[in-house]
Each structure stands twice: as C-alpha cells, then as structure tokens.
Design a protein around this nucleic acid. Structure first.
Lengths: 273, 273
DNA sequence: GAAATAGTCTCACAATACGAGAATAATATA
DNA sequence: TATATTATTCTCGTATTGTGAGACTATTTC
C-alpha cells in the first residue's frame, strides 16, 4: 500500500462513535510518530482535517465545502426534490432518494412525513449494495459488463443476498427486475419495513440512482401494491425527465462505472444498528 | 511539496464552475500520465473521487458520508438550530451560524425568512477571515498568541481590512470588540447588508463560532441598533449555555488552534460574486 | 464481433518518504 | 508575565517507494 493510501486511511478512523482522533490513533494504524504527523499535516493543510485543542483532530472545513459543491451540482438531488415532496405530501408517505457511485449506494435525501416509521436513513448514510429496494433497483440497471464483474468478484455476496446461485440466475433475476421497472423488498434492511423502488436515469439512460417508498408492512398490505408501484414509477419517471431536460449542455454528472469493483466496502452489510 | 500534498491538491481542481475533472486536468497540475492515474486511483479508492463515464471524475460518496458525520456531531450546529429558529421566527430576521476552523471561517447554517435579502450564504460557503461581523466576532476572541501570530504572518491583510496599522492598534481593537460582546459591520461583505454578530463559546470559553443577524441597512436604521444587539447577544448566550450543558462528557469537539496560520486561503477575500 | 478509448502494469532509477532524536512552538500553570 | 509541560516541526542519513515511459489489458462503442 502506498503512502498516499495510508494517509487517506486516516479518514477511515472517523465514525459515528469517534469524531476526533489523536496522534496515537494514527500511529496505531501503523506509522511512526514523524510519519503520523506528516500525514496529519498534509490533511490539515488541505482542510480535510482541522486541529483542535489537546492534540486532537477533527474533520475539517473542506469536507463541508466540498459537500456543498456536490449538493449544488448533483442533478439527482436538485431535480428530485420538488417531485419527491409533491408525492410525499399527497400520499403522506416516506420517500428516499438514493445515489449510485460506481461502488457504493448512498442515501442522498429523504422526505419523512410518516414520523412513526423510524428515520433510520438520512443524507450521507451508506447503504448495503445487495439488499433493499434502493440497492436492487440500481443493481438491476447496471450494464451486463458490470453485472458480470460483480458476479465474478463478489459472487459470494450475491449468493448470500439470494440474488442467484450462479451467473445465469443472477442475470435473469436482474433482467426481470429491469423489465418490471420497479422493485419491492420486505424487511431486508429494517424489519417490518417495505421498500418500493424505481430507477432514475440520466439523459443517456444510464442508471443514476433510485427513489423508494418506505412503509410499514401493515400499510403496504392495506394500500395495495399496485397503487404504490404505479406512484413510484411515475415519480421516478418525472425525475428522470427533469434530469434529461436540463441535460445536453454540461457533461453528464455521474453515472455507473464500477469496473472490477475490487473493493466493495468490507462491511457493506450492517444496516440495522 | 510532497506527493501527499500533490495528490490532495487534485481536490482543489473542483469548484462551483467545475464539477468534474479529467485526466488531463491532473496532468496539467504537474504530473505524468502514470502519476495522475495513481493519484486518481488512490482518491477513488478512498471514495473522495468517483469515476464517471468518458474518463471524467467527480467528487465521491465519501465526501457526503463525512459531511454527515460532521453534521451529526458538531455541537455548534446541533445546539444552535432551535434557538436560531426561535429568534428568527419571532423577529422575522435572517440569521447565520458561523463556524471557526483554526484557519477558516465558514457558514454552518442559515435561517432566512426575509426572502427579499439576497441569500448569498449557505452551509459550506467559505467566508472572508477579516471582514464581516461573522469573522470579526470570532477574530476578537482568539487567544493573544493567535492574534499575535496573525499580525505577524498576515499583517498586510489586517491593515487592508482596517483592523489596525500595527500590533498595538490591532490588539486594542480586538480587545474592544471582546469587551463589547458584539460586532456590527456595514456592507463589508455584501453592499447594503448590515451584520450584527455575537460569539459562541464551548464549555471552556474557547471561541467556537458566531451567530449573526443579516439585515438591510434600512431595517437596521429603523429597528434600532440596541434591540438587535441585545437579541443577538441573548441568542449567542443561549447557544453557548446549551453547548456547555452537554459538555463535560465527550472531548471538546472543535476549538481554536491556528498556530502560525501560514496558509490562509490565498483569496479569502472574494465575497461578492 | 472489431476499433477506439480508458486504465493498469512493468521496470530501472532517482527522488523523497521514513525514523530517531533534537529543537521549537503553543498551552497550561504559577 | 514567566515557567513547565505538552504538542509539533525540523534535521539528516538511509533505503524505501514514488516516478515516468511505454507495453499491456480492460471497457465501451460502433
């Protein structure tokens, strides 16, 4: 592993429980005192880290600045907001927006009027890649190339997730989801929660992400699957055409491209805390 | 400059106008093709960058993930929200929350009911370090050490900003601001906009940031300076005690520590676009 | 399927990241 | 304001490893 990678791994020390790190934490990750300081120094200079009192360091202002840039420019986020809020208000239903990043699926936005449903997700929360409607909807629309690579490099995970025992099964499962144009999952991420998802594309019909209704099992039963499916498909279509509408000008913002997907997050499957 | 710094400088290629970069952009910043790919590779592996189609790269999911961590844990942000919204609703006034990061001042949150005032700021927008009520309020509360260092390394900027021609003047100006407990600036960042700011501290009375009212000159005239000053001081005090209340337990989150402040952002003074 | 584009690997060499300790800076304490 | 303590940077010789050029492989497009 190069020194570049080792330095960037310092960022991995942060997590929900640990919001500040110290010199020793970096040393413990395998670096001499001098080197630990060097990494910290570079990260601080770039603003990714910021020093606080007592020799500890926190995430720095650059993070917030860069996130602002992403929020401003992400076509998914900027174009999905209004339609999402419309539908959510009309149906009184919880909606999530998911973004696909080549090797990661992430919650990009939520509208959550049904407060009795636990608000597990929020912008920036990573999501499992093989479970839940958000993920499967996206998975289904990757290119054949990408799907084959996933089976090749992560067949074990595919099998665990029940997406197919082999390439033929996986391929045909994904193909069916694609034809359906929606995906329903029950309790795959959070018990008792049903996800109803549909895909969002860019102007070139590449998968960008997904929108998902998150409802309790009881509501899903009473509401009737067909209506919810029809609504989510309409919502996704509205967002897709809003994105296609703005396009043509600037270069496509983000799209699928996982190549070998060598490095799925090691524990991409720890959703319920 | 080390290879670490060179790699991190790739992130500086992004900006409001440029949301995706290409191999050539990295090469142009001074790296061979192989090295450019190496930097990109490391940044992609860490999730700071993500590949898109056509050999271009955008900011990656890690940015959003890390920003979430910051939002969740920042005591300033989490404790200021409610009081800010209260006051803003009661007075129908625009309020900004500013965060201090050792060498940078940044907008952390805004509540903006007075829509006729241009919404120049938003979370993540960097702010000038020597102009405007947000910045000066913070500046005034740095330690003597820090102030001296600023004068030493950035005396020119201090003079330009009219904060004092020499150390004695600078020191006494800051000292007066500190005694006042508030700071009013007029049109320093945006023409016709008056800022009324007060400092927010952590449990150990170290400066964390500032809250600022942003009103038009006309309203400032009619409303009466005293009332607004009194309100902003109360607001800041409420936030400070909310933060002190939660403290004691976890290690202080963020606080001043600019050491030499060798590297103020080169153009920290380009506010009005 | 083939052609065109994007990304990775190999290898020899020299630049530079590394570790240990001394020197200095910044904070806490008196 | 001066002193003690803790945190950070600097110096320097060594050898690790980052570097560039080009061949090779992977991926997308047609």
């Amino acid at each position: 592993m190069s020194s570049l990678d080792k330095m960037l791994k310092v960022l991995d020390l942060f997590g929900e429980e640990r919001m500040s790190i110290q010199l020793e934490d970096v040393q413990a990750a395998g670096a001499s005192r001098a080197t630990a300081y060097r990494y910290i120094q570079s990260l601080c200079d770039s603003g990714l880290l910021a020093p606080t009192t007592g020799g500890s360091y926190v995430l720095g202002p650059r993070i917030i600045e860069l996130d602002r840039l992403v929020r401003r420019a992400d076509p998914l986020l900027t174009r999905a907001g209004a339609p999402m809020r419309d539908v959510s208000a009309r149906l009184g239903i919880n909606v999530m927006l998911c973004s696909y990043y080549g090797d990661k699926v992430m919650c990009a936005d939520i509208v959550w009027p049904e407060r009795s449903v636990p608000e597990y997700y929020e912008r920036g929360r990573p999501m499992p890649m093989f479970r839940g409607a958000m993920a499967k909807t996206i998975l289904a629309h990757l290119t054949p190339y990408q799907l084959r690579n996933i089976m090749l490099w992560h067949g074990e995970l595919v099998r665990e997730a029940g997406l197919g025992e082999n390439w033929e099964q996986f391929r045909s499962n994904m193909s069916r989801l694609r034809r359906d144009g929606y995906c329903v999952t029950r309790g795959e991420v959070i018990p008792d929660l049903v996800g109803i998802g549909a895909p969002v594309f860019d102007a070139e019909r590449r998968i960008l992400g997904s929108v998902v209704f998150a409802v309790r099992e009881s509501r899903f039963q009473s509401a009737g699957k067909e209506d919810l499916v029809s609504e989510i498909k309409q919502l996704a279509a509205r967002i897709t055409s809003a994105i296609a509408g703005e396009a043509g000008d600037r270069p496509a913002q983000r799209a699928a491209r996982p190549r070998k997907i060598r490095t799925l997050a090691p524990e991409d499957a720890s959703p319920v805390e």
